[in-house]
Design a protein around this nucleic acid. Structure first.
Lengths: 247, 247
DNA sequence: CGATATGTTGAGTTAAATCAATGAGTGTGG
DNA sequence: CCACACTCATTGATTTAACTCAACATATCG
């Protein structure tokens, strides 16, 4: 059961470990997945709306997002993805893409043929269950984002998002003590929250002013966790984190 | 392969038929699911946020919704559900509910133990795939709703929702010629779109005024489908509908 | 039939958008 | 190494879509 930290797919193993307990055989099978590893530059489109996907994309390093371009240069970001995520796992059952998958930063990704993923899920129903579950947590996060978009103020929305992004990274060991990478621009935050980038900027200024967060050199530092949680009325239930849970 | 129209679970079979092609054996297995059928009054809470679900709820008749109560009597509706839907299928892999499931109208529902559903998916991987796929389409709809909430005007948002609700019912044979049941209040529409009910009312008036729709006695009539689609910039890809309705 | 839920309309308010300009980083090629 | 270009961040002024509050009308139902 020893983790192989040097295996290229380690981020995936680490994520699966944070959700479930793998047998040696399962771990082996995952590590033996046939992958094609690529280094991508920032803002690279991996799969586009309308395409038929025949493989899944596993993030090994860097950030990606799912998004869709709306009329007139506007776009909506649906989710952020970090190492260990398979953002287009859904394409296994819905090959026709209804949105784009793009890198936000420089990134290393592994492409895994659908065939191989399907084979893995056939041979190991418990891995299938974990994958299915992961797409369901995705959906739960979408629901929470709906609440943020519809019913929270810009301030609460961003506060809520920061709580979420911190905890998601914390759960897989990518965060520090109330600090985590946030390698995205204010424009990206605006696209994710459906706010204008001008307004995002103003709200961030207000948060800084209140001593809630610091945000520089692509790092988010949460200076007042309790206060941030309270402001956002953040309840982590929807993230369905299992092991490493909330501090 | 003949449809058994009188079987109590017919709505589920009809929905599965609209997505996939079942073998006789699979159809048999679905029809033999152990169910507990109940008639529920309107606005009845089926499962609540925070509860641990041990069964799934299949809608046989009437409408239900997934929702969450936000502070101060506000609530967000995440999705509408009609006959054939299993709105809490996700509880199979995430038993802890992060939202509520409620009826909107009088409804007949069938409760199926998780155990039985799990057994079904183990024995018939292709049914598992269809179920998984269905939760993925759910997620796709959530994403589209995010776009509506964040980037569309109230008018376009409602127009888009009407297109969606019509097509979803049409796909399982529950809609007529550009008309379908819409047994929900303006308040429900407001909760689903994150608009105030006052504003929903005004927008509906405007739509009526433009001759786009008629909405009375719980029936939505789309008077100008092409125009409605154009107004909403509606693209049905995200619904991932497969076949057209059965009989 | 009265009671309660739902729908309708007007008037005033507000959170966030837009428009516009400027400042601060970052990177590339001459 | 600097200059140019480009992206990203910041601030002010103005506009606007949608909200809130309040009153009243009309269904619907027991």
């Amino acid at each position: 059961m020893a983790s192989n930290f040097t295996h290229p797919l380690f981020p995936l193993i680490r994520k699966l470990d944070s959700i479930a307990t793998l047998t040696d055989e399962e771990r082996q099978a995952v590590e033996n997945l046939p992958v094609r590893i690529r280094a991508l530059r920032a803002r690279h489109e991996i799969v586009r709306h309308g395409e038929k996907a025949s493989q899944c994309c596993l993030i090994l390093e860097g950030w990606a997002c799912r998004s869709k371009v709306i009329s007139e240069g506007k776009r909506q970001i649906f989710s952020f993805h970090i190492a260990g995520d398979i953002p287009d796992l859904q394409s296994l059952h819905i090959p026709l893409m209804d949105h784009d998958l793009c890198t936000l930063t420089q990134a290393t990704v592994a492409f895994i043929p659908h065939e191989a993923v399907r084979d893995l899920t056939m041979r190991f129903p418990s891995i299938a269950a974990v994958f299915w579950r992961d797409t369901l947590v995705d959906a739960a996060i979408f629901r929470e984002w709906m609440i943020s978009m519809g019913r929270r103020t810009a301030f609460d929305h961003l506060a809520h998002l920061f709580c979420e992004l911190y905890l998601k990274q914390q759960a897989v060991g990518l965060a520090g003590e109330h600090r985590c990478p946030l390698p995205i621009t204010q424009g990206d935050l605006a696209d994710a929250t459906s706010l204008s980038n001008v307004h995002v900027n103003r709200v961030l200024k207000e948060m800084r002013g209140k001593g809630l967060i610091t945000l520089r050199s692509n790092t988010l530092v949460i200076e007042a966790w309790d206060e941030l949680i309270r402001a956002a009325e953040f309840d982590a239930t929807y993230l369905h984190l299992q092991k490493r849970a909330v501090p």
